[in-house]
Every structure is written in C-alpha cells, then in structure tokens.
Write a protein that binds this DNA or RNA. Sequence first.
RNA 1: GGGCAAGUGGUGGAAUGGCAUACACGAAGGACUUAAAAUCCUUUGGCCGUAAGGUCGUGAGGGUUCGACUCCCUCCUUGCCCACCA
Length: 845
Amino acid sequence: MHGMQGVRGSIPLSSTILRRYSMAVAYNFNEIDKKWQEFWEKEGIFRAVPDKDKSKYYLLEMFPYPSGKIHMGHVRNYSIGDVIARYKKMCGFNVLHPMGFDAFGQPAENAAIKNQSDPKIWTNQCIDWMKEELKKMGFSYDWQRELSTCDPDYYKWNQWIFLKMMEKGLVYKKKSLVNWCPKCETTLANEEVINGGCWRCKEIVEQKELEQWFIKITEYKEKLLDDLKELKNWPTQVLTMQENWIGKSQGCEIYFKVKDSSEIINVFTTRPDTIFGATYVVLACEHPLVKKLIKNAPEEKEILEFIAKVEKESKIVRQASDVKKEGKFIGAYAINPVNNEAVPIWIADYVLMEYGTGAIMAVPTHDQRDFLFAKEHNLPMRIVIRNPNDQIQNPKNMIQAYEGGGVQVNSGQFDGIPNQEAKTKIAEWIQNNSMGKITTHWRLRDWLISRQRYWGTPIPIINCKKCGTVPVAYDNLPVVLPENVKFTGTGGSPLNQAKDFVNVDCPKCKQAATRETDTMATFFDSSWYFLRFCSPNYINDPFDKEEAKYWMTVDQYIGGIEHAVLHLLYSRFFTKFFQDLGMVSFAEPFNRLLTQGMVLKEGEVMSKSRGNIVDPDGIIKQYGADVLRVFILFAAPPEMELDWSDKGMEGIVRFLNRVWRLIDEQRSLDRARDESVQPSETGQIHELTRKLHLTIKEVTSAFEKDYKFNTAISATMELVNQIYQIPEVQRKNKTVKDAVEKLVLLLSPFASHVCEEMWQMLGHSKSIFLETWPEFDEAKIKTSTVNIAVQINGKLRANIDVPADASETEVREIALSDLKVKECIKDAQLKKFIFVPNKLVNIVI
RNA sequence: GGGCAAGUGGUGGAAUGGCAUACACGAAGGACUUAAAAUCCUUUGGCCGUAAGGUCGUGAGGGUUCGACUCCCUCCUUGCCCACCA
C-alpha cells in the first residue's frame, strides 16, 4: 500500500552522516535499543490474545508494499501508531497491533524483467530487509500475526471472496480500454505512460479494448454514501472526498430528436435551468449513434480518422487541462425539445462515453468547457441566466462562461425566476411533457479489477468454449501462481506462456479449456486484510468470525491521505459485503481514522527521482531509534505535511540527553537519599507539582483528543526545563524524584527503549509498559491568582493579577484602578466592558 | 479540468474567536576549558527610540465582531489525489 517514497536501489547517504560535527547521544543507544527489542520479543509483551475480561483496542497502520527499504513516510505512519498502541496498553487495554505486507504488485514484476529473477524471491527478500528495519525502530507489533498477501494461504481467500461475489451477482465481464504499448505488447499503468509514450520504449501508447473483470461496487453506492454519516471520527476532508467520489447528483435526461431521422439523442445534465441556452450537442466519439449519423456524409472519412485518433489517446491526455479541445461537426442537426430549435451535432474528445449518457447539450454561456469549445469553433451562444454583477447582453462580449446564479432570461415562460428555483421547475416541466426525465446520477463507476500481470492473485475462472466462464470449485482453491515463468516484458501477461497453468479441463464438461490469466488488482488484497489479522492462520474461512467479533472494528486506523478515496472506499465496500454474507455484524470497518501528511524535504516530496531521500536506517545508526521516533512526532502535527530537517534532530538528542542526566542524577541521589531529612518544600518545588500535573494533562489529552504529539512533546520539554531550574540541593526532594518518574512514564510511548532503561535505573524491575499511565489532579493545577490582560479598544494596554474565578465586578474594579489603564482612559467615556473570566477584559471607550 | 488541503519570525512550528510567535532549530554574545566538544547563562519579528515606550505585523484585498492567524466573501501561491503505483 505504501510505496510512493522510493524503492531499494541507489539511496544516497543522509547528509547527516557526512557532517563532521554532530551531537553525540549520551547513552549507548545501540546496546539499549537491542536489549529492549529482544526483551519485548522474548517476554511477548506485545502479543495479542483475546481476553473477554479486558477491553480490546485494535490499532492498525496501513501495511507497506515491501520495497525493501522503509522510508520516512513509513517511519512517520508507524511511529504515530506505535505511541498510541503503547499508550493504550498502559491504560489497561488489550491491544492488537499487527503488521504485514501488501506483497503483490508491479515493482516485483518489473524487477523480475530487469534481473530475470523470480518475483517471489525478490519480494520475500524485500520483506526480510524491511522487517529488519521495522524491528530496529522498535515498533510494538505482534509479529506472530504477520501476513503477506502473496502467500497462497492469504490469496486463496481473495479467490474465495471473488467467487462469493460472483454468486451474489456482483462480478461481470465487460470490454474496457487499457493503455497499450504496441511495441512491448503490454498493458501499461497510467504512471507508466509518460507524455503519451511508453516509459520503457517511448512508443506512442494506444488505447486497446479488452474483456475485463468488474466488481459491481455501484450496487452498494447508496449504503456507501449514507453510512458516511456514521463515521463521526473520520476527518471531514476524507468524508467530503468520498462523498464527491460517489458523486450523487440530481439531474435530468433530455431527449433531442435528430432532425430528419427517427433517432433520439439522450443527453444528461445537472443544469436543466440552462436548457434554453443549449446551442449545440456534443457526442463522445465512442457514442453508438455517431457511426449511424455520419454514414454517407461527405465528411465521413475525415470524421472516422478523427475518431481513430481520439480513441488512441489515453484517458489522461483527453482529460488534461492544457490540451486544446478538439472536435468535428458531423453534418447532422438535433432538435432542442424546449424551443424546437435545430442545433448542430458535434463530436469532441472532451466528452467521455463513461460519464452520464455519453452526450451533452452544450451551453457555452454558462459552462466554461463549452465556452472554450464554442469560441474555438465559432458556435452560437445565448445568455439564459443574468449575472447580477454585470450588464452584458451580448454573449460575444463575454470573456468567460458565467457559472453562477441569477434570474432566467430568454427562457420562455421561466423568465424572471431565480435559476435555483428554475432548476426544479424546468426539470419537472420537461418530465411532465415527456421531453425527458428527472434522474439521479452517480459518479461512482464499477471497479475494474483485471490486470494483465503475473504478480497478483489469479482470478479463479476457467474459460470453456462450450460452458463459457466456469468458476473454479471452492475445494480446488487456491489457484496457485505457476513458477518458472519467463519475464520478458513483452507479449502480454507472462501467465499466457505457462502452458501447464493455462491448459486445464473444464470442471463442468471435462473438455479441454483454458484458465483465466488475468490477475486481481492489489487493492483487492488490501480491502480485507484488517479482518485476516484477527485470525491470520485460520483455515476454514477468510477469518474466524468469533475472533473478528472480539477484535473488530479497528479502533484506530492510520495511513496516508493519498488513500482517502480508493483503499478506504473498497475496504468499506468489502465490509458491507461480509455483513450481507452474515460474517460480520457491523457495516463499517474503521471507527477512527487518522490520515498523516507527507514527509517533505525543502518543500518537495522525498522521492528517488528527486534524489532527496533521507534513509531512516542511517539516522538509526547515528542516533538510535528513539531520537528518530521523537523527532518525527515533534516536527509537525500528524496530519500536516512534515518538512524534514537534519538539524532539528539535534534538539531531540539534546533533550533526551538532558532527561538521561536527570535520571542518572536521581539514581546517585537514591543511594544517598535520607528519607527523614527531606529539604523543605520551596515555592519552586510547589510550582513543579503544578507543572507536572499540567504536563500529564496535556500529554494525556494529546492521546485522547487530537493526537498533537508535537505539543505533547514540547510540554515534556518544558517540564524538564523547569526541573533544571531547581537548584541541585533541592533536587534531593522526593517531589522531584516523583516528577522525574512520571516524566519517564509520559515519555515512554515516544522514546520507548531509553525509557525502559531509565525505568530500570530508577529501581523498577517490571517493564514500563506493564505500568499504569499517570493521572493528573485538577486541584493541583489550580492557582489562587491569575494574570489577565486588559485591552482598551481591543489593544493590549496592561496586565493585572486577579483572584482566580473572580467576578466581573471585582475584576472591573481592579482593572479600572490600574494606573496604566487610568492613564489610557483619561476622561474618555466608558462605552462597554467585555469580561472573559480568567482570560482578559476589554474596555471600550 | 475536477476534488481535497496548506500559507504565521532566518527555519520547523505554537495559539481554532480573547495577551501572535509556546517548544525546538539556527544565529550572536558570554561562562567553563590549554583548546575543542559537551554543558550552562543572556539576546534574538520589523521599524522609530539611549531608554521608558510607541508603532506595524500571521500570502493579498474586502467583510462580520468590543476583539480575527482563527469565521465569511474574492483572489494569489504551493502541495496531494483523480480509477492499471501502492
């Protein structure tokens, strides 16, 4: 799933390693990291076992694509998850925190072509490397639950789910276009099409029609939309993006008769209020009527050439903004049903067959794309909605389309009506007079899962000349990928060459038949892995219903914002499907969602092609895992973009060194500490208690509320600074020792290794993660007086001390008697007195 | 083209209607040291002023409010996603 920020290869050394002077970490992090990683593993501290007596907490981070190297995006994602998992454990929850690998996909196959290797061996090697790095970060995973989607024990269930979907009528085959390189004879991903050419050989990419497998996700469109309301703990931006993606819109189909013909063009529009301004009609090149209408027309040959050209262009090129919209008049006219006007029929590359009905009515005055097209081809225009802010009467004077609101003009009986109102009225009038019908349009398309690739789950289908498409029997799953396949990069899917795989007997008629060679898109694999983690070795079903009942739903899911639509939508769809199968009792898989921002360097995304990758492994070698974890959480709030800086990390080294010295000091004080001779509580010590409770409150609220770990960490820094303000003799005080102990507890989710070590140094024998999270006391935070601001006409003029929770009358008296305030007011009239308890007052004069 | 975000000191960021710049980095000066590192102390938004203090200031412009980084409108810039990368 992750994989954007670079794969194994020539990774430049971090500049940090090359810098001559760098801050030294005060403790032996190599030894400490290793010691505690082994301890956690050996003691099984983070192993998850169902326990009915304990509340469960399922924390999941999006699993990675095994590129071989972890990148800063992974470090960020998994550090955020890890601190939450450790915190929840300390709060007494039974935590499930698993990790696995989204192991199918194109990079393995591309590597196979390049090195003549086996994608399986390559992938497993990458998984080993990556696991090693993840372990070095000290993340609290239950490795016993590790899974890999390229394992037949996993992808067997992809096939099982596919067949179940087929049983429920959710699977079908349809012709669909793919990017095709005629030289390599292979399908290409959008990202492999570079400036319209093949990434490998630069040949111009064509569009080719292939029979492909689709999943009817559209059957679930209403539920997918409605249930978004239930997702109260999802970021609103993700909800909005999903809502737009599903794209429910009320619109209208309008029937245009073709002049001197019995044919009818059905156009779809969301703007029926502009129908009187429709001055031409545009069909997609693939529209079935086009070939009929141009038959025997004088321009037929020219038009066919144009269509052939457009069909070769990739979808990306067709929708790109910088390309000039091209089109051709096809010599026929259509009748606008509302005013019986004959308007020309055009074809153009910017109208897509997949959207709406593949035909549009063009209103150049009120749609910018139509406007540009009409200007380019000198087509007529008519204003039908009056822009209240300008007086343009003649459409020739318009410099762009007016897409805003206003009253109807040139619209027959609807003139003078606001267009929002006219939208419904016109649609109803059209429907009542059989000129069209009101429809609901959805933007969501069915999901194309076919890939003409080797390294994916084989689609469990046998194609028989006699019986058609025959599903593989459940008992015969998994359909295992054949080995010893040649990877040439040409000639279609490598599976076609695997004769033993392809040639089989039809399960129905036992005659010779062929196996389907398309594999599944990897999004299929990742749409249900969160359920598999509940029982990763279960053999009777994709997952054990009882285990899933205990662990699901995922309490906190964390991953990149780039998955806001696709992965998250597919996972929601699968869950609803499992609900309909009676396998789960809930409709939504992820209770709370956190989408973390990208990791940048100097304002640019870290990527191999930019050559600005900072390798986490180098940072771990130089500073240890804790420094990296704390820094990446400190540098920015989780959902924001994070600008990497090598320098900033030295601040964290300094900070952890300061904490280490405090603990070291307390340890030596412990030896000499005399309980009976406690230094007396000074004001500073009293203040420290208050600060401690404030800090506990702040850090706890970061975990419970907004995950602002950057400010949580800065709060612990302030606490440390305050402890250092206390003279060394006073630090013998038990209150200081208590504060230091609590500090270590507060920091342990972040700097886990060194905190375990420090906890031991402070004389504890049990793992810090088996301790209880500290609680704060609101009474200890309260003070007797507060300092509040005095504003005069909104400008800060003075600060005054008032008793905490003082009344307005009291504060007013103190404020008005303040010398500075008096001087500012002089003899001006007091108009208003604004009072915000414990914060400020504003005197308006 | 569509959708979603973000814009605050030299830098990362803090403050979500109430004292703008917490915390950290960097920089400058000082203490310690034979020296360096480490550590500790001081200063650090702009402008005016010796100072007290004043004044401007959160991408630009407008609006709402006693009060706006925060809410509303218009615009600019940057980043991310858009169905075969994952």
